[in-house]
Amino acid sequence: MTDKQDNLVEARGLTFHFGSRVIFDGIDLDLQRGKITAIMGPSGTGKTTLLRLIGGQIKPTAGTIHVDGQNVPGLSRRELFELRKRMGMLFQSGALLTDLSVFDNVAFPLREHTGLPEMMVRDLVLMKLEAVGLRGAQRLMPSELSGGMARRVALARAIALDPMMIMYDEPFTGQDPISMGVLVKLISDLNEVLGLTSIMVSHDVAEASQIADYIYVLSQGIVVGQGTPDELRDSDSEWVRQFMEGTPDGPVPFHYPAGDYADELLSRGDRR
């Protein structure tokens, strides 16, 4: 299969302004079907915003996002909801419904969208929970779960409807090494077994490059680097290398843009 032939998600000239802040400034993305694509970049570059744009929760200022051939910003609410049934999203917090048990959380999309009899819902839920290794936790409430378990339950829920793609929002943030390892394995296994297309937003370079097939590096609203993990590590862009290696100062400044330091110290602060 040749590259860039079968793209599930295609963004062209994607621009998004939040107030007067420019989050994205005309970026192009191609996410291949059946692959894991990581979107990386420093915190505050709007990676989560990108997932929301793909999911149609917010509309871009300009540009198009095609998901499976449909332009997301141009869809009606009804069409958008139909499309979302084929998308799974794993939120950073898990976003489990706190008033439902683990079982009911995973059953939630099935009960909402399929008219399946309760027996079949039960079987499906148990299968999905087994896949993430938490069948034994089905009676627990979300408040009784650790962060890593909550994310795995959320993952089981995200795959409940057998979607064509899953979006992961910072799946590794704040996890202990073991949970992180579990999640890394789960994401790559699920992708392989279920034939999913995965989009992963992350700044955990090591884990992401371990499983990603292709990586986009974003900074200040533009794509500064893209390629396979190996290609990026050998990138000739100083910036991309700084990011991949995690050095504190470099093309990405340590300081938030500010006025002259000495001037501000000497002034009396009378602007406040």
């Binding site: 929301r52 999911g55 929760q57 909801f81 139909e82 499309l83 979302r84 049934k85 998308m87 799974g88 999203m89 939120f91 950073q92 917090s93 976003a95 489990l96 419904l97 706190t98 939630f108 999309p109 909402e112 969208h113 959320a154 829920r157």
Partner: peptide, 22 residues
Amino acid sequence: GLMKATEQLSGMEMMAVDPLKR
């Protein structure tokens, strides 16, 4: 408010469930 803060509402939206109705 807490459902919103813990992304449960937008999670529902992404599951194609309208939180206004549900």
